[in-house]
C-alpha cells in the first residue's frame, strides 16, 4: 500500500457516498445513468469473485464487500426507489457495444487463460469504459447538477491516482501490471474533457454546462 493508492481508494469511497447523498437529498436519480451503475455492479462482481479463494488483507476484503454491496444498493435506488425520476430516453448508450468488445479483449489479452483471470481482465477493461453511458447522457442534456459533477470528479480522481501508484510500485517493488496500467490510463483519459469543464466552471462556482 502507498499513499497514492490509499488516496485513490478513498476518492473512490467518497464518490460512492456523494452519489448516494445526492440521491437522498434530491430524492431523485435525475442525471444518473442507470446503465453506468449497472456496469459497475458487473465490474465489481466479476473482479471481486476472488473473495472466495484469495485472501489479501482485511482492507482488501472489506473494501471488496463495500464496493459490491454499495453498487447493488445504488442500482436498487435508481431502479426501484427513485425510478419515477429516471428518464430512460436520456440513457440510450448501447452497453452491448462495451460489454461485448471487453469480453473479447479479455479472451485475447490476459495473463492466464482461465475462468477467474478472464473475469478479472474483463472487469478491468469494462471499468475503463463503464462511464461512457454517464458521459453520453451528460452530452445529450448538456448540463449536470453540481453534486453529480462532484461524484464524477471523485471517480476520475480515483483512477488518476492509481497512475502514480503504479509508477511508485514499479520503482519500489519492480511490479508492473500492464493490463491494469493501460486500461487505467484509458479510463483516466476519458475524464479529461469532463475535468476541464469541472475545473474551469464548477470549481469557479458556475454551473456545469457544455458548450452547445
Amino acid at each position: 500500500m502507498n499513499v497514492f493508492r490509499l488516496l485513490g481508494d478513498l476518492a473512490h469511497l467518497a464518490s460512492i457516498f456523494i452519489l448516494v447523498h445526492k440521491m437522498h437529498i434530491t430524492r431523485s436519480c435525475r442525471g444518473i445513468s442507470f446503465k453506468t451503475q449497472a456496469l459497475y455492479v458487473l465490474v465489481f462482481l466479476t473482479r471481486y469473485l476472488d473473495l472466495f479463494w484469495a485472501w489479501i488483507s482485511w482492507y482488501n476484503f472489506l473494501m471488496k464487500i463495500f464496493f459490491i454491496s454499495s453498487s447493488c444498493y445504488i442500482l436498487y435506488l435508481v431502479h426501484y426507489r427513485f425510478r419515477p425520476t429516471y428518464d430512460p430516453s436520456l440513457d440510450t448508450f448501447k452497453v452491448e457495444y462495451l460489454v461485448g468488445p471487453c469480453f473479447v479483449l479479455a479472451l485475447i489479452f490476459n495473463y492466464h487463460f482461465d475462468f477467474s483471470e478472464i473475469l478479472w481482465t474483463f472487469s478491468i477493461y469494462l471499468e475503463a469504459v463503464a462511464i461512457f453511458p454517464q458521459l453520453f447522457m451528460m452530452q445529450r442534456t448538456g448540463e449536470a447538477e453540481t453534486i453529480t459533477t462532484h461524484y464524477l470528479a471523485a471517480l476520475g480522481v480515483y483512477r488518476a491516482l492509481y497512475i502514480p501508484n503504479w509508477i511508485y510500485r514499479y520503482y519500489t517493488e519492480g511490479t508492473v501490471d500492464p493490463i491494469a496500467i493501460v486500461a487505467g490510463i484509458v479510463q483516466t483519459g476519458l475524464y479529461l474533457d469532463f475535468f476541464y469543464v469541472y475545473v474551469t466552471k464548477v470549481l469557479q462556482g458556475q454551473k456545469f454546462e457544455l458548450p452547445a
Partner: peptide, 10 residues
C-alpha cells in the same frame, strides 16, 4: 507462465 497471478489492488 503466470499461472498464479495475485491481484492485490482494488
Amino acid at each position: 507462465d503466470e499461472g498464479n497471478v495475485v491481484h492485490d489492488e482494488l
